[in-house]
Amino acid sequence: MAKVSFNVNGESRALDLDTRTTLLDALREHLLLTGSKKGCDHGQCGACTVMVNGRRINSCLTLAVMHEGDAITTIEGLGMPGHLHPLQQAFIKHDGYQCGYCTPGQIVSAVAVLDEIKAGIPSHVSADLNAIPQVAEAELRERMSGNICRCGAYSNIVDAITEVAGSKG
């Protein structure tokens, strides 16, 4: 067992955990924040995506004890029914989901993707490594590729993200 404290969605949480507990299981099984999903538990699907200190990661491939003092944002921290995040609203409007299981990961990832583009981080499809990346459909598709949607809502998800990116200017 090991003690760890971190901040989740603006609240500090202290846990005493089996060292083997992943961040994902700490969220789902100990903090009862089940919005982050376990699709594969091996970093192969993206359903567990959360942001740690503002960066998206697969929470299934990191140990909770490695996050002492970190600030973690899960889907629940982005918005809840009644006060949705613009991306959550856009996913509803564009039907950017079907079964809903990959959806929280897609949305958290999308929030981070827009931040990454804004921060000027290039991608595999950026034509010029030294230019400022733009919000283009090809860029979104490449950057979102770590989030698998077996229901196949990709086309709608890209529409949803594009709309939010556009309205942000």
């Binding site: 999903k37 982005l78 809840m80 029914p81 959550q88 996913f91 509803i92 039907d95 809903g100 959806t103």
Partner: peptide
Amino acid sequence: DRIDGPLKTTGT
């Protein structure tokens, strides 16, 4: 829009 949308998009 799907009536279960707010639940699915918030992970609830």
